[in-house]
Protein backbone atom coordinates (compact mmCIF):
# COMPACT_ATOMS: atom_id res chain seq x y z
CA UNK A 1 0.00 0.00 0.00
CA UNK A 2 1.47 3.41 -0.93
CA UNK A 3 1.35 6.45 1.36
CA UNK A 4 -1.55 8.00 -0.58
CA UNK A 5 -3.68 4.88 -0.03
CA UNK A 6 -2.63 4.58 3.61
CA UNK A 7 -3.63 8.19 4.34
CA UNK A 8 -6.90 7.71 2.51
CA UNK A 9 -7.70 4.59 4.53
CA UNK A 10 -6.69 6.22 7.80
CA UNK A 11 -9.10 9.03 6.96
CA UNK A 12 -11.77 6.34 6.70
CA UNK A 13 -10.69 5.12 10.17
CA UNK A 14 -9.52 1.75 8.81
CA UNK A 15 -7.88 -0.23 11.62
CA UNK A 16 -5.44 -2.19 9.44
CA UNK A 17 -4.13 0.99 7.79
CA UNK A 18 -3.65 2.61 11.20
CA UNK A 19 -1.68 -0.39 12.44
CA UNK A 20 0.45 -0.27 9.28
CA UNK A 21 1.22 3.40 9.94
CA UNK A 22 2.07 2.57 13.53
CA UNK A 23 4.48 -0.18 12.52
CA UNK A 24 6.12 2.08 9.93
CA UNK A 25 6.77 5.05 12.16
CA UNK A 26 6.71 3.84 15.79
CA UNK A 27 10.49 3.68 16.17
CA UNK A 28 10.97 7.03 14.43
CA UNK A 29 8.64 8.65 16.96
CA UNK A 30 10.08 6.65 19.82
CA UNK A 31 13.65 7.77 19.14
CA UNK A 32 12.56 11.42 19.01
CA UNK A 33 10.58 11.11 22.25
CA UNK A 34 13.31 9.18 24.03
CA UNK A 35 15.97 11.74 23.03
CA UNK A 36 13.86 14.44 24.64
CA UNK A 37 12.46 12.67 27.70
CA UNK A 38 15.31 10.21 28.43
CA UNK A 39 12.76 7.83 29.92
CA UNK A 40 11.69 4.72 28.00
CA UNK A 41 8.26 4.24 29.57
CA UNK A 42 7.28 7.90 29.19
CA UNK A 43 8.53 7.85 25.60
CA UNK A 44 6.48 4.74 24.77
CA UNK A 45 3.35 6.24 26.34
CA UNK A 46 3.73 9.45 24.39
CA UNK A 47 4.32 7.61 21.12
CA UNK A 48 0.99 5.84 21.58
CA UNK A 49 -0.76 9.10 22.47
CA UNK A 50 0.81 10.74 19.42
CA UNK A 51 -0.53 8.07 17.06
CA UNK A 52 -4.03 8.26 18.55
CA UNK A 53 -3.98 12.06 18.33
CA UNK A 54 -2.62 11.83 14.80
CA UNK A 55 -5.38 9.47 13.65
CA UNK A 56 -7.97 11.75 15.23
CA UNK A 57 -6.59 14.69 13.24
CA UNK A 58 -5.73 12.77 10.08
CA UNK A 59 -8.18 14.88 8.04
CA UNK A 60 -5.60 17.72 8.32
CA UNK A 61 -3.08 15.69 6.31
CA UNK A 62 -2.96 15.95 2.55
CA UNK A 63 -1.60 13.14 0.43
CA UNK A 64 1.62 15.00 -0.47
CA UNK A 65 2.69 15.54 3.15
CA UNK A 66 5.34 13.51 4.95
CA UNK A 67 3.12 11.47 7.27
CA UNK A 68 6.02 10.28 9.43
CA UNK A 69 7.32 13.81 9.88
CA UNK A 70 3.84 15.08 10.74
CA UNK A 71 3.36 12.36 13.37
CA UNK A 72 6.85 13.03 14.76
CA UNK A 73 5.94 16.69 15.26
CA UNK A 74 2.82 15.66 17.19
CA UNK A 75 4.93 13.37 19.37
CA UNK A 76 7.52 16.07 20.05
CA UNK A 77 4.80 18.57 20.95
CA UNK A 78 3.35 16.06 23.40
CA UNK A 79 6.83 15.59 24.93
CA UNK A 80 7.10 19.32 25.59
CA UNK A 81 3.56 19.48 26.96
CA UNK A 82 4.65 16.85 29.44
CA UNK A 83 7.92 18.60 30.29
CA UNK A 84 6.17 21.93 30.82
CA UNK A 85 3.51 20.33 32.98
CA UNK A 86 5.82 18.28 35.16
CA UNK A 87 9.23 19.91 35.28
CA UNK A 88 8.87 23.62 34.50
CA UNK A 89 12.32 23.43 32.84
CA UNK A 90 11.43 26.17 30.40
CA UNK A 91 9.74 28.59 32.75
CA UNK A 92 10.76 32.27 32.29
CA UNK A 93 12.60 32.32 35.62
CA UNK A 94 14.63 29.33 34.62
CA UNK A 95 15.92 30.80 31.38
CA UNK A 96 16.40 34.48 32.33
CA UNK A 97 19.99 33.82 33.35
CA UNK A 98 21.02 33.29 29.76
CA UNK A 99 19.48 36.36 28.20
CA UNK A 100 22.99 37.80 27.63
CA UNK A 101 24.11 36.85 24.12
CA UNK A 102 26.38 33.82 23.95
CA UNK A 103 28.99 33.35 21.24
CA UNK A 104 28.54 30.04 19.42
CA UNK A 105 31.60 27.78 19.05
CA UNK A 106 32.07 25.47 16.10
CA UNK A 107 33.71 22.08 15.67
CA UNK A 108 35.35 21.75 12.28
CA UNK A 109 36.47 18.13 12.14
CA UNK A 110 33.25 16.54 13.37
CA UNK A 111 33.61 13.61 10.97
CA UNK A 112 36.48 12.36 13.18
CA UNK A 113 34.06 11.81 16.04
CA UNK A 114 32.06 8.66 16.59
CA UNK A 115 28.27 9.05 16.65
CA UNK A 116 28.05 7.02 19.87
CA UNK A 117 30.38 9.44 21.60
CA UNK A 118 28.42 12.46 20.35
CA UNK A 119 25.21 10.85 21.70
CA UNK A 120 26.95 10.20 25.01
CA UNK A 121 28.05 13.83 25.28
CA UNK A 122 24.60 15.18 24.34
CA UNK A 123 23.09 13.05 27.12
CA UNK A 124 25.46 14.66 29.61
CA UNK A 125 24.14 18.18 28.91
CA UNK A 126 21.75 19.88 31.34
CA UNK A 127 18.15 19.09 30.34
CA UNK A 128 17.26 22.67 29.36
CA UNK A 129 20.24 22.73 26.97
CA UNK A 130 20.00 19.13 25.83
CA UNK A 131 16.47 19.35 24.49
CA UNK A 132 17.25 22.44 22.43
CA UNK A 133 20.44 20.90 21.07
CA UNK A 134 18.48 17.74 20.19
CA UNK A 135 15.72 19.72 18.45
CA UNK A 136 18.20 21.81 16.46
CA UNK A 137 20.96 19.35 15.61
CA UNK A 138 19.02 16.08 15.28
CA UNK A 139 15.34 16.87 14.75
CA UNK A 140 16.19 19.76 12.39
CA UNK A 141 13.91 22.34 13.97
CA UNK A 142 14.97 25.96 13.42
CA UNK A 143 15.21 28.52 16.24
CA UNK A 144 11.81 30.05 15.47
CA UNK A 145 10.10 26.64 15.56
CA UNK A 146 11.86 25.78 18.82
CA UNK A 147 10.77 29.11 20.32
CA UNK A 148 7.17 28.31 19.39
CA UNK A 149 7.27 24.82 20.80
CA UNK A 150 8.95 25.95 24.04
CA UNK A 151 6.93 29.18 24.22
CA UNK A 152 10.11 31.26 24.62
CA UNK A 153 11.59 34.27 22.77
CA UNK A 154 13.60 33.29 19.70
CA UNK A 155 16.64 35.15 21.07
CA UNK A 156 16.39 33.17 24.30
CA UNK A 157 16.31 29.96 22.31
CA UNK A 158 19.36 31.04 20.27
CA UNK A 159 21.30 31.76 23.46
CA UNK A 160 20.22 28.53 25.12
CA UNK A 161 21.21 26.59 22.05
CA UNK A 162 24.58 28.36 21.83
CA UNK A 163 25.30 27.59 25.45
CA UNK A 164 24.30 23.96 25.08
CA UNK A 165 26.25 23.53 21.89
CA UNK A 166 29.33 25.18 23.42
CA UNK A 167 29.21 22.76 26.34
CA UNK A 168 28.91 19.88 23.91
CA UNK A 169 31.83 21.10 21.81
CA UNK A 170 33.94 21.57 24.92
CA UNK A 171 33.30 17.96 25.86
CA UNK A 172 34.05 16.77 22.34
CA UNK A 173 37.27 18.83 22.13
CA UNK A 174 38.42 17.54 25.49
CA UNK A 175 37.84 14.01 24.33
CA UNK A 176 39.70 14.71 21.10
CA UNK A 177 42.70 16.11 23.02
CA UNK A 178 42.78 13.08 25.29
CA UNK A 179 42.61 10.78 22.30
CA UNK A 180 45.45 12.68 20.66
CA UNK A 181 47.58 12.45 23.83
CA UNK A 182 46.84 8.74 24.24
CA UNK A 183 47.73 7.97 20.63
CA UNK A 184 51.02 9.92 20.76
CA UNK A 185 52.08 8.60 24.17
CA UNK A 186 51.52 5.03 22.98
CA UNK A 187 53.52 5.76 19.81
Amino acid sequence: MNQKDIIQQCKQNKYTAQIEVYKLYKNLLYNSCYRILKNREDAEDLVQDAFIKGFQKIHQVNEEMNLGGWLRRIAINLCFDKIRKEKHVFSIENVQEIEAETVELEFDNAEELSIDFIKECIDKLKEKHRVIVVLYLIEEYNHREISEILQLNESTVRNQYARGKNQLITMLQKHQKNEFKRTHTTA
Binding site: N31, D108, A110, I115, E140
Partner: peptide, 17 residues
Protein backbone atom coordinates in the same frame (compact mmCIF):
# COMPACT_ATOMS: atom_id res chain seq x y z
CA UNK B 1 32.55 19.08 8.28
CA UNK B 2 30.73 20.88 11.07
CA UNK B 3 28.87 19.10 13.85
CA UNK B 4 25.35 19.51 12.45
CA UNK B 5 26.37 18.25 9.00
CA UNK B 6 28.09 15.23 10.57
CA UNK B 7 25.03 14.41 12.69
CA UNK B 8 22.62 14.76 9.74
CA UNK B 9 24.83 12.53 7.63
CA UNK B 10 24.54 9.82 10.29
CA UNK B 11 20.95 10.52 11.26
CA UNK B 12 19.95 6.85 11.09
CA UNK B 13 22.48 6.00 13.80
CA UNK B 14 20.61 8.34 16.14
CA UNK B 15 17.43 6.34 15.57
CA UNK B 16 18.74 3.00 16.83
CA UNK B 17 16.38 2.64 19.81
Amino acid sequence: MNLKEHIQQHKKEFDSE
